[in-house]
């Protein structure tokens, strides 16, 4: 009872720290402090998630500790080693991994569902499929953005002629399959679910492919808000208001930030997304 109270207060404090941290991050004098505040909020929330009472849970703390250690080591070392000039692509790859995490979590829901051991209603299944789609696009899109900024991939190598039409068709097919799966409920299959995941991943690549390398910071910001959205939707799967608030906060502020970055470049978002003269535009947002 008391533990539950403490956990709830901890989540509340975590969400407030996110809001306050973002506020401080948007002013030059307090930005560094804001990052620390937001980071503390995350630490509090992770501790709360570890000790929150879950009925009948076997906890498996050793698995969690191992994974936390591996993830923290990889994250901290790569953040320390990265060149100052390579920062945007580093952010991109971190962002992609967050999206990948949402994909893994959503995919993990499909196994017990199609085996019949964990029923989902239409809303529940739609939530899982949305997390799969948004997280997938964010994952592969961010990887390609990384590749472009790092100079591993050339714009002209990946952009096909009439790419916008291809993208629209691909999106239509993906959404169509998603709607079919949601409507089919338990008569769908894991194979089709996996196909849906694969299509989402392919769409992520295809979505970023025609966008010029100089516009990448804007796209990374957009993909960042996608990751936020996928985190929020995953929060619905686990019934966590904290994840919902954190994810939506990033989704909303990421969207506004994307628009502000476009404004700073004197471009419209639509212009950036269609590509076109992307390669020629100078990116003041990267600074």
């Amino acid at each position: 009872m008391l533990l539950e109270f403490i956990i709830n207060i901890a989540y509340l404090a975590g969400s407030l720290a996110f809001v306050w941290g973002l506020r401080l991050l948007s002013s030059p004098d307090t930005a560094r402090k804001g990052n620390i505040v937001a980071g503390s909020g995350m630490v509090i929330a992770i501790l709360a998630a570890l000790f929150q009472p879950i009925e009948g849970a076997s906890n498996n703390y050793l698995w969690i500790a191992g994974a936390l250690a591996v993830g923290a080591a990889i994250g901290l070392v790569s953040a320390k080693k990265v060149q100052m000039t390579a920062m945007p692509q580093m952010v991109s790859i971190f962002n992609g991994l967050g999206g990948a995490c949402a994909v893994v979590l959503a995919y993990a829901e499909l196994f017990p569902f199609y085996e019949g051991s964990k029923p989902l209603d239409l809303a529940g299944l739609s939530i899982v499929l949305s997390a799969l789609l948004i997280g997938g696009v964010s994952f592969t899109g961010s990887l390609l953005a990384y590749g472009k900024l790092q100079g591993l991939v050339n714009d002209s190598q990946v952009a096909l002629p009439r790419h916008s039409a291809i993208n629209l068709a691909l999106l239509a097919v993906t959404l169509g399959l998603g709607i079919y799966l949601a409507a089919a409920g338990s008569s769908g299959s894991l194979a089709l679910g996996s196909l849906f995941m694969a299509l989402s991943l392919i769409y992520g690549f295809s979505f970023v492919a025609p966008i010029g390398g100089a516009d990448m910071p804007v796209v990374i910001s957009l993909l960042n808000s996608f990751t936020g959205l996928s985190a929020a939707v995953t929060g619905l799967i686990y019934g966590s208001q904290f994840m919902l608030v954190g994810g939506i906060l990033v989704g909303a502020s990421g969207t506004i930030l994307t628009v502000l970055m476009c404004d700073a470049m004197n471009r419209s978002l639509l212009n950036v997304l269609i590509g076109g003269f992307g390669g020629g535009g100078s990116s003041s947002a990267a600074g």
Binding site: F18, L22, A102, G135, T227, Y238, V250
Partner: peptide, 22 residues
């Protein structure tokens, strides 16, 4: 501050880890 803010917001979108812990 656009890029640092984007980066900070990106770190916050890591809340998805809470679901993985669950």
């Amino acid at each position: 501050l656009h890029t640092p803010l984007m980066s900070g917001a990106n770190a916050i979108s890591g809340v998805v880890i809470i679901g993985a812990i669950f």
